[in-house]
Write a protein that binds this DNA or RNA. Structure first.
Lengths: 110, 110
DNA sequence: AGCCATTTATTCTATATTGTATAGGTAATG
DNA sequence: CATTACCTATACAATATAGAATAAATGGCT
């Protein structure tokens, strides 16, 4: 029953962004969050493609929000991490952690 | 001059394994290290293919060891992480870390 | 009201890069 | 020369990435 897959590098980022954003998570904010926190430039297409993949695997699910009263406010699609998705992040991070543990890399991430 | 790429999920594992193994790092031990530490099953071909890619990107380099005096002791190909490779791990981990920071995931990896 | 320029957001599509397994080959030993 | 430990080749699936195209909304015209 427990999944055995790990999140890809970018998938991992996206899921973490969703967790941070809680109920403000949709394509545009996800992109912003990653760019803001990491300085990494992210193409919007990459974000949506990955969200779609994550959803098809059941790691996240989405619902359509209402349009907001601002110029051009097309309605957003909000995303949330599922329990299965949470398991996946944990599994992925545990694996990484167990490989890092005890190593001394500049800065130390432990 | 500084690279802007991040390591893929499996690449990341492999590089960490190399760092752990120091000068005993070659295909077979890399595989073992990952399997042992994470419980994840790893095919040997995946390891070699990834090592080859990492090398072509300059993240690791290899040298041929001498044959060892044991049955079937064919000479091994030893791998080491380059400075560029170290940068890549650090960059990758910093990015992850900055996304994780402040989140409370079961177990906490911070 | 009906149109349209503008804005925010999402979808589509195409390609490159990574991840993965399997089969096959090579250099050792006894 | 059979057996062992290790490595290479290859093929295919999954993930990452960018950019163009499309959609849905608003506000200001006329």
């Amino acid at each position: 029953m427990t999944e055995r897959d790990y999140l890809g590098e970018f998938e991992h980022m996206i899921v973490l962004a969703l967790l941070r954003l809680e109920d403000h998570a949709y394509g545009v904010t996800v992109r912003q969050e990653i760019e803001f926190r990491t300085g990494r430039e992210v193409s919007i297409g990459a974000v949506y493609a990955t969200l779609a993949r994550l959803e098809s695997k059941g790691y996240v699910r989405s619902r359509n929000g209402d349009p907001t009263p601002e110029r051009g406010g097309r309605s957003k699609r909000f995303f949330r991490v599922t329990a299965k998705g949470l398991n996946a992040v944990n599994r992925t991070q545990r694996a990484l952690q167990s490989m890092i543990q005890g190593l001394d890399l500049a800065g130390s991430y432990s």
